[in-house]
Design a protein around this nucleic acid. Sequence first.
DNA 1: AACCGCCGCAACCGCCGCTGT
DNA 2: CACAGCGGCGGTTGCGGCGGT
Length: 352
Amino acid sequence: METALQQSAATAGGGMRPAGAATTVKKARQELELEQERELRFPQAAAAADQGGLDEELRRGPWTVDEDLTLINYIADHGEGRWNALARAAGLKRTGKSCRLRWLNYLRPDVKRGDFTADEQLLILDLHSRWGNRWSKIAAHLPGRTDNEIKNYWRTRVQKHAKQLNCDVNSKRFKDAMRFLWMPRLAERAATAAHQPQPQHVAAACNNVLVAAAAAANSSSCCWSSPRSSAVTTAACSGSSSCSSLTSESAHNDDDGARPHAAAVLAAAAAATGDDDYWGAVTTTMQQNHHQQQQQNEQFDFWSTASALQHLTTAAADQDLTGWVQGFSDDGILSGSSSDSLWSLDDIWRMQ
DNA sequence: AACCGCCGCAACCGCCGCTGT
DNA sequence: CACAGCGGCGGTTGCGGCGGT
């Protein structure tokens, strides 16, 4: 096994080798230590794993370090693709699918591990509200994150919150809860965490969150519609760069016709350009608006607006949530003081 | 310390669409 | 055009770790 590592390390220096292979070798070396520890602790399991090489049966279940190294070395030398052929050529007793999955979700050098940041969570929530369970599409906008990881995040964290609120994750009520409470708070959390200029895609997502929250608050279909919602929208539109590009056409589309509909502009942009180009459209819109803002010598402070809107949306939402959360036990909601806990004690008291 | 239940994650499964023959 | 093989995607499952009792 060490031979494989040495070979891998030796070839890392030159030749046609995918970028980041050296990092992968380092990771594999760390895993080797873990594997050796496992072998000491579970000698029978290790022996069973070795048995896999004796027959021609396809192996299943957890990957061993040997298999990982084999796959890493092979891909380092020959590149990805043709997974079934790759599995055979590399001598792996695995299906091509299994190899592909192992590489993409775990062994790939640029795979980012660890908790999702507030930025990433915000992006996931926003993109999921737009695309649904299109995990791979969502993952494409989170560098280093895999569709599997995002899917797991959604199924564990997000659905857990839905369960806490005693509603279905696909219900309008929970979606509104995300828009009004969770996402603005994530935006605020991201702002305080970073406190610096955000990457464009994150800024676009945050902006979108706030505009959508305002639009939802202003919509008659929103289950939390409230007298304060117009104030929310006003706040969003006065602060949001997207709103400055509102067209008369989108205004006509509004039910009340009194105020341009920010979300409609984004939706129109998405519809006009095709869904895949949504972010391009949003980015372009933001760039244009930023330019306009500069011309007007008005420096738009997105993050302070985010914070201000968060208070407004929370207040608007809280007003109409009376009764909804009644019956929640403190155990269910408040036990988790983890970073991803949704509802504060304050929320509960105000909502009662 | 032992047991139990829950949670998170890695891996598998089945389906679907694409491509080559 | 039909078929087979393959890759990609979303849903599901099983296992290990961890916290509570």
